[in-house]
């Protein structure tokens, strides 16, 4: 016989199937701010304002809602070669100096911004 529990099970499976069919279709975040972490500090700056952050050992640039470590006194220069990071979750790190930056995002409401 068809029992009440079967109906619940059916609804759960249908919901899972529906969610699975929809998931991963959209990028749901857009770049909003830059997190800068050093051995002493953990700061967050807006990406809406072009900024040049000069530290003793390196320089970080925010330009057009993107960010990069543009100069460093480290010998590998890997952080500088990473270039501009643009999307939420992306990171760039200068390991010798113990500094890393990460783009933080907010819920996506626009495709692009006119500025």
């Amino acid at each position: 016989m068809f029992k009440p529990f079967d109906g619940v099970l059916l609804l759960i499976i249908l919901a899972i199937a529906l969610l699975w069919s929809q998931c991963g279709e959209k990028e749901n975040t857009e770049p909003e701010s830059l997190r800068i972490v050093t051995s002493d500090t953990d700061d967050t700056l807006t990406l809406f304002r072009d900024t040049l952050i000069t530290m003793d050992q390196l320089t970080i640039e925010i330009r057009n809602k993107r960010a990069a470590i543009t100069h460093s006194n480290c010998h590998t220069q890997q952080c500088v070669h990473t270039g501009f990071i643009t999307t939420p979750g992306q990171m760039s790190a200068c390991m010798p100096n113990g500094v890393w930056i990460e783009i933080l995002g907010s819920e996506k409401t626009t495709d692009v911004i006119s500025y």
């Binding site: 807006t46 809406f48 409401t109 626009t110 495709d111 692009v112 911004i113 006119s114 500025y115």
Partner: peptide, 15 residues
Amino acid sequence: YIGVRHPRRETLAGI
């Protein structure tokens, strides 16, 4: 959806 930057605030003027 195109965001319009506000000239004096760190928010959008609108979308």
